[in-house]
């Protein structure tokens, strides 16, 4: 039975698609079978972030309208045999796609995958509700700023009414140097403000911006996503420490260099 997890945020541009892809990669590197489903109709980018946009032949809409089977629409990752994506329509036909249809389609993946990760659209419109109705759990991606936190709080309260098994927070783009300098709201404060369980802290790093699908093993983000995947798999709460690099004597030098840049 696959675990179906929706990645939501409320505010756009916080990194939902990037989190979906990198989490999928991290889970698949643990040997799990993972499918990433793009439910952001019209503004679909999952295929691009995965680097498989040239291999997309069919999409969700083709499956719904009977032009192909689900298996034919799934696109395998370039370098992982156990990671697939299900791209969404290039044109927004979302009004014709009901939540019930999407739910039935995702149910079909139950026996084939261990995890089905759903990339929800930004906002709290029909598309968001359609994505959430298919899931057992939800991850709310936030960045440490007022607008994102405000929207996330509204999303969390809507998610509570869906009676999901779990709703967890993912803090994206955390800057260790700013947290140590007390110029950015710390993850602990965010967890307290939103009164929601924190499952991952992901650092802001150039490597994420430059990567297309796979992160280098040397970068902090790789370790942060691996910790995140292990938390999901084992139900643990081990958080990546973004501040350790910026604490102590050498940390203060790193901080001042970053400040001057």
């Amino acid at each position: 039975m696959a675990k179906k997890i929706v990645v939501a945020s409320g505010k756009g541009g916080v990194g939902k698609t990037t989190v979906t892809v990198n989490l999928g990669v991290a889970l698949s590197s643990l040997g799990l079978r993972v499918a990433l489903v793009d439910l952001d109709f019209g503004l679909n980018n999952l295929d691009v972030v995965m680097g498989v946009e040239n291999r997309v032949v069919f999409d969700l809409l083709d499956v719904f309208e009977g032009r192909c089977r689900l298996k034919q629409a799934l696109v395998q990752s370039n370098d992982r045999k156990n990671l697939f994506i299900l791209p969404s329509g290039k044109i927004d036909f979302s009004k014709h796609i009901t939540g019930q249809n999407v739910k039935l389609l995702i149910e079909k993946m139950n026996s084939v995958f261990d995890y089905v990760i759903i990339d929800a659209p930004a906002g709290i419109d029909l598309g968001f509700h359609r994505a959430v109705s298919c899931a057992d759990e939800a991850l709310v991606v936030v960045t440490p700023n007022l607008t994102s936190l405000r929207d996330a709080d509204k999303v969390v309260s809507i998610l509570q009414s869906y009676r999901l098994d779990k709703v967890s927070l993912v803090i994206n783009r955390a800057r260790g140097d700013l947290i140590v300098n007390k110029k950015m709201i710390s993850p602990t404060d965010i967890e307290l403000l939103l009164k929601t369980n924190l499952i991952a802290i992901l650092p802001e790093e150039d490597a994420v911006f430059l990567s297309s699908g796979t992160l280098s093993k040397k970068c902090d983000s790789y370790r942060a996503y691996r910790t995140f995947a292990l938390n999901l798999k084992n139900g643990t709460k081990k958080l990546f420490d973004t501040t350790c690099k910026y604490s102590g004597f050498f940390g203060s030098i790193r901080r001042s260099i970053k400040k001057s840049v």
Binding site: L146, L149, R150, D189, L193
Partner: peptide, 10 residues
């Protein structure tokens, strides 16, 4: 101050 601001808005 920033935390208070976020708290107030929420």
């Amino acid at each position: 101050r920033e935390i208070m601001r976020v708290q107030n808005v929420i």
